[in-house]
Simulated scan of single mutants.
Amino acid sequence: MRGGREDSLRGKFLRGVLLLTLLVLSARLWDLQIVKGDEMRVLSERNRVRIKKIPAPRGTIYDRNGVVLADTRPAFNLYLIPEDIRDFSETVDGLSGLLGIPREEIMSRLKQARGFPPSFPVLIKSDISMDEVAKVEAHRIFLPGVTVQMEPKRFYPHGDRLAHVLGYVSEISPEELKMEHYKDYSAGDIIGKYGIERIYEKYLRGKDGEKRVEVDATGRET
């Protein structure tokens, strides 16, 4: 009799614990789906959908006879997206070994972008070769956060013969980013540094676009 009573009490206790657990889980589920449903839906959307920048091609420069002096061509640029990197050391070391980019250079570029959102693509190397593109794509599964984007690059049909007049373009520096004159620019943007390219920067720059893209767990577009 005594043993049966103890078993009965133990059974009631276990059922009580199970019931309490189910009540707690149900309350939590209600809170997430009903009370905070809209908020959680927005957070989920942010993790899945990303705004991708579409760089504008730089304006073409002609001479008085309509001959092209400066134009743009497509180029492949290598980026790192901090938000998608699982292991920084593993990704940085892997990328450095794969393409021969000094580890210090990669880390320096990541540090320069610390003030930007973690989803902001950090330019690591511009105008990479097709061989380098193939290497990156072949190892993408081992390098989460690494992405290659095709973007416009400045091109001078006559080489550097008119460099003293046309000037040149280059990536904006950390010092220039702090200037009021470049308040609308971001790390990785290309600006005119000298000559016509610099004097007419606001006319040649163009206006970047953007699009919404869905990404998977590694940051790749789906």
Rank of each mutant, 00 (worst) to 15 (best):
E175S: 14
Y182P: 06
S44A: 13
L23G: 08
R5M: 06
I141D: 15
Y194E: 01
E83M: 08
L32T: 11
I196Y: 11
I190N: 09
V136P: 04
I106T: 15
D208W: 05
D131G: 13
E104Q: 03
S173I: 02
R86S: 03
N47I: 10
G97T: 01
E132Q: 00
V35H: 10
Y182F: 11
P102E: 01
L110A: 03
T147A: 12
Y62I: 05
S26T: 00
R10Q: 14
L22K: 02
F13R: 00
D93F: 07
D127I: 11
L9M: 04
L166E: 03
L18Q: 02
E210V: 08
N47L: 13
G59T: 08
P117C: 03
D184L: 06
G16V: 07
R73G: 15
Y185K: 12
I196L: 14
P118L: 07
P118Y: 06
R140C: 05
A217R: 11
I106H: 10
V68I: 15
G209K: 07
I141K: 15
G97V: 01
T21D: 12
V215N: 05
S26N: 01
L32P: 03
D184T: 08
F88M: 13
P121W: 10
R41I: 14
V213Y: 11
A70W: 09
W30N: 11
L162F: 03
R10S: 13
R64N: 01
V213G: 12
I61M: 08
R48W: 14
K193C: 00
M40P: 04
K211F: 07
Y79R: 06
L99K: 14
G94P: 11
V213P: 14
Y185R: 06
T21P: 05
D38T: 14
R58F: 15
I190W: 04
R64F: 04
D84A: 02
D127W: 15
K36W: 08
I172F: 05
L204Y: 04
V42N: 13
T91F: 03
D93T: 11
F76P: 04
Y168F: 07
H139F: 10
V122D: 00
I81V: 05
E197K: 02
G167A: 01
V42G: 08
R58Q: 14
M130G: 11
R64H: 03
K125L: 02
I106S: 08
T222N: 09
A113D: 13
P102N: 02
S96F: 04
